[in-house]
Design a protein around this nucleic acid. Sequence first.
DNA 1: ACCTGAACACCGTTCAAGT
DNA 2: ACCTGAACACCGTTCAAGT
Lengths: 207, 207
Amino acid sequence: MPRTAAGLVRQHGPGALTTRGLAAEPGTAVTSVHWHVGGREALLGALAERTVAGLGGFRPTGRTPEQRVLSVARALRRRLRDRPHPAALVHERGLTDRMFLPARRVLAREAHAAGLRGERAAEFVRAVRFQVVGHVLVERERAPARHPAGEESWGAVSAGDDPALARAPAHPVDTERLLTTPVGALVRALPAAREELPCADGHPGSR
Amino acid sequence: MPRTAAGLVRQHGPGALTTRGLAAEPGTAVTSVHWHVGGREALLGALAERTVAGLGGFRPTGRTPEQRVLSVARALRRRLRDRPHPAALVHERGLTDRMFLPARRVLAREAHAAGLRGERAAEFVRAVRFQVVGHVLVERERAPARHPAGEESWGAVSAGDDPALARAPAHPVDTERLLTTPVGALVRALPAAREELPCADGHPGSR
DNA sequence: ACCTGAACACCGTTCAAGT
DNA sequence: ACCTGAACACCGTTCAAGT
């Protein structure tokens, strides 16, 4: 059970953060937290800012643009998944763009390396942002309520002719592939996605 | 200003729904709404169910699997965007899977038509679900707080050699393309994505 | 500068009591 | 069966008052 506001949001989400509960722990008065941080909204805003600031940078790994873009997408996914509640808080407060900034830098470089220029490169980077952030937001969904319709539907599409599809949702899903497959397809559609980079173009960690 | 609970959530989100406010409008007592719908949580649950039920079916248009899958993705995006708050409510309550059910049926058919079978088809359909739902959740972000870092960053990646990329976020973004581009790339990676379907396979609205 | 208690205006929910 | 008022346990916030 965390005592700090950050730990509270991290573990149980913004809904668990109350000014009164916060003050009750160290035994201070409710109103003092107001004096210090300026109220609940301001505190959540500060936590969102802290999350953005603490996200860190990215060092793409791999030789092709596809590998390198995927490594960034995976790293960002992992960091956001580690803190789903703060990540959603950042998103709700309109700070996603700034949170994505470190990743955007390296992705823009990869887009250039893959042959994209100008508005096309910008759109590619935006598409990756939507991919990763959307993926994390979707995955944050709480365990779906068990409902008979879930099983029935897969079977209905093709009862006998594809048994593997019919029982598809039975075994666990590799959610990381649900991000890497589309992002990979996105990169592979680029002009020079598969050419190896001979360490040119000034890549920092391209090895 | 909507008087109904559904209209309230549709326009201003779940946060705007209070049992007291709801009872105050027709002049009844606060406790009567409790008797009728069983409390605030139950009411939100019923609204989520209603949203799922009212989503409707899908008729893919176009000749190739790519066109047909994209038409479904666009249609689902449009319906969810029309009701961002109810859509988020559905997601928060773990009903996304059931909400996606009508789309899943037709997408599974398209996956089959494009040459996918079994677990691969199921993963394709799941990927499209993540795409569309994630896209809508990301786009629901409130207008980002204007911050100087936003402009600076694009320029920093390559100041002089790509002016179009540097000023990229200046003009408005076509967000629909941020969905259709990745989904299109995803479909085009399939075995028979570009072959026309000669109305075989029992498609209902294939022409 | 820092913290306090009292007070205000909200919540959701329960429950015994009415008709 | 349907609705009520009173009451309880929570909220966030303000503000004058203390030290």
